[in-house]
Write a protein that binds this DNA or RNA. Structure first.
Lengths: 144, 144
DNA sequence: TGCCATACGCACCAAGAGGTGAGAAATGGA
DNA sequence: TCCATTTCTCACCTCTTGGTGCGTATGGCA
């Protein structure tokens, strides 16, 4: 214990950790941009948004009740809210046909399609690693 | 009136919509798998999880307080919760050094790294389309 | 006459997410 | 002796999220 730090931390570990941090210095990102991106991700990475996005991507144009049927577990209120949000963000177009009873159709915009494509990798990951995650959970849950 | 629907809706629109749906028939996915994937997406597409994932990806190993400093706005409680969840899902490894005061380090597992890579496309999309989304919102907000 | 279908808006309420502040545990330093 | 440090857990409280049910417009239909 010639070094007082040895009493508190393992020096090798400290050195290792700090070396690692040094090799990965702070990225020179504009914090303003980063905040906006984080915000946007927070909006877009919503569970219902993701599910509706995927559904519209694979089915094309759908009307309100059709979406409600296919997105299992979503309430009418949440679906309305989600679609409004997506419309505001420019991800879907909402077409109202002035007929009785009302007929409203939703479809992805090119922006929505590009977002869906961007999420494609995540879906693939989820499918591919589902088993690994479940096993990790089992291992975590069955120990101390 | 061979089809009673014609009385209530514009036939051309119906035909168009149904043709569209026909070209995109139901995907033959196992609903059990799909439910699991949706569930996993719901877990993983959490705001804090995403931010922590990205941070660990670009900085490597970090200890608790470092993460708390860098992920702006996260509370201690949420950070603990998020890290536990990620550990349970096999996305991060948690290393406790039995020293005083405690030193706990977090790093991504290979699984975590692969998820981060899968989300890469989404980050790029967000950066690239930030402007488009903001403009869509302005347009939406300033009309009727 | 009265009911149905469709896509909502609104109001009310329960459940859960998340913030805050306290405390715990071990030890070197003032 | 007492404090600072670090990574939490726990209890309490607030605020948001989301579910449920009701209302609405309108024209065809039994």
């Amino acid at each position: 214990m010639e070094n007082p730090l040895q009493k508190r931390f393992a020096p090798a570990e400290i050195a290792e950790a700090e070396a690692f941090i040094d090799t990965n210095p702070e990225a020179p990102l504009d914090p303003r941009i980063e905040r906006l991106v984080n915000d946007l991700i927070g909006r877009v990475a919503d569970k219902w948004t993701l599910l509706v996005l995927e559904l519209l991507e694979e089915r094309g144009t759908l009307r309100f009740t059709r979406i409600a049927e296919q997105v299992e577990g979503i309430s009418q209120k949440m679906l309305t809210q989600t679609l409004r949000q997506m419309e505001r963000d420019g991800l879907v177009i909402r077409t109202v046909h002035p007929v009785v009873p009302p007929r409203v159709e939703y479809a992805l915009t090119p922006l929505g399609n590009s977002l869906s494509a961007a999420f494609c990798g995540v879906w693939v990951w989820a499918e591919r690693n589902l088993e690994a995650v479940e096993e990790a959970r089992r291992r975590f849950d069955t120990r101390d």
